[in-house]
Amino acid sequence: MHVAQELVASLDKLASLPSVYYRVRQALDDPDISLNTLSDLIGSDPALSAALLRLANSAFYGYPRRIETISRAISLAGLEQVGDVILASSIAATFGGIRPQRMDMARFWRGSVRCALLCRGIAQTQGSNDTERHFLLGLLADMGHLVMYHAIPDLSDLVMGTAGMSLEALATRERQLIGCDFAEVGAALAQSWRMPVSIGATVGEQLHPESAGEYSQGAAVLNIVRRIDEMCEAGASLDDTIASLPESILVLGDIETEELPSLIVHCEAQLHEMLASLGIAAS
């Protein structure tokens, strides 16, 4: 049997995010940072530069002329969107060499980015001033599976073949056959990256938010967006998707049901462009 920390520790490459992420993140948090300084910092990393330029030139923004400079891309996208792209690109780069043969990587990244966009959207409707934290939560929600498929591919494949489609059934089978579930591994990954305790705790409690204590609201939001992602992948209608969401978890997450249809549609519109900006195929 395995423990979550052991699986994360087995992957040396995942010890930390790229250092440029922390430098850019610090710059974005500085209210006095100049556009030129930020542009130079992002421009020092070819992958980050390419991701930001791809997003700025995407159909989502629909700018009539091609954006060719980092400074113009920042001005067009805005600092919040820049932060999201930098974070997603850094995590994608960290996992870039991990390509488990038995895992549907297009489905994995599509779900991760969809959950990140939904988490951020819900946070915005709730008036949060820390939407990047919520984007990060959504992005990390299923990272445990990527770690597990790389560290213990045979066991992970066995679980996937017997657990059915629901996250709860999958996690139960993982605990039975492996000794820990994907949420626990995701929490251990966040801890190894020295992220705030609240991030790891929320990711780890996503399957049972009612027991998450002070992190219950965030865990409930994460639980809801994972359910929405499952329904979207199944091709369900908006009405069926909303109707499938447990009322108790919606209340715990302080989520207004009437705002979800337009939010889901908006996030789906963003999804392809965000994936494209990261150089990830949508399907």
Rank of each mutant, 00 (worst) to 15 (best):
L87T: 10
S156G: 10
L7R: 00
R227V: 07
T69L: 12
L11M: 09
D84S: 10
G200S: 06
E184D: 12
Y215N: 11
S75I: 10
A236T: 01
S216C: 11
Q101H: 07
G235W: 04
A276L: 08
I98S: 03
R226P: 00
L17K: 09
E268P: 00
S283R: 10
A27W: 08
Q270C: 15
L275Q: 06
A51E: 00
P196K: 03
E132L: 12
P64L: 03
G279T: 08
P261F: 09
I86N: 04
A93F: 03
V265K: 11
R194P: 03
I280L: 15
I255V: 10
I242T: 07
G121H: 08
A187V: 06
L245R: 02
D154L: 15
S262M: 12
L275M: 06
L146K: 01
N129R: 10
G279P: 14
S166R: 04
A188H: 05
R72E: 15
V82K: 09
A163I: 01
G97I: 03
V221G: 00
G121K: 08
L48N: 02
Y21I: 08
E256A: 08
A171S: 06
G62P: 14
R120I: 03
L14F: 12
C267G: 00
F182W: 04
E258R: 13
M160Q: 14
A15S: 14
A219W: 11
L252V: 03
L250M: 14
S211C: 11
T202A: 06
A141W: 07
A243K: 15
G78A: 09
V265I: 13
P18T: 09
E80C: 00
P209T: 03
A169W: 01
I98E: 07
M195G: 08
Q191D: 15
D30T: 02
L87Y: 10
Y61L: 15
A187N: 02
A27Q: 11
I86H: 02
E268F: 09
C119W: 00
T69E: 11
V24W: 05
V203D: 07
L53F: 07
M195H: 13
V197W: 14
P18W: 06
E268Q: 12
P196H: 11
A163C: 12
L275I: 07
L79S: 13
A59T: 15
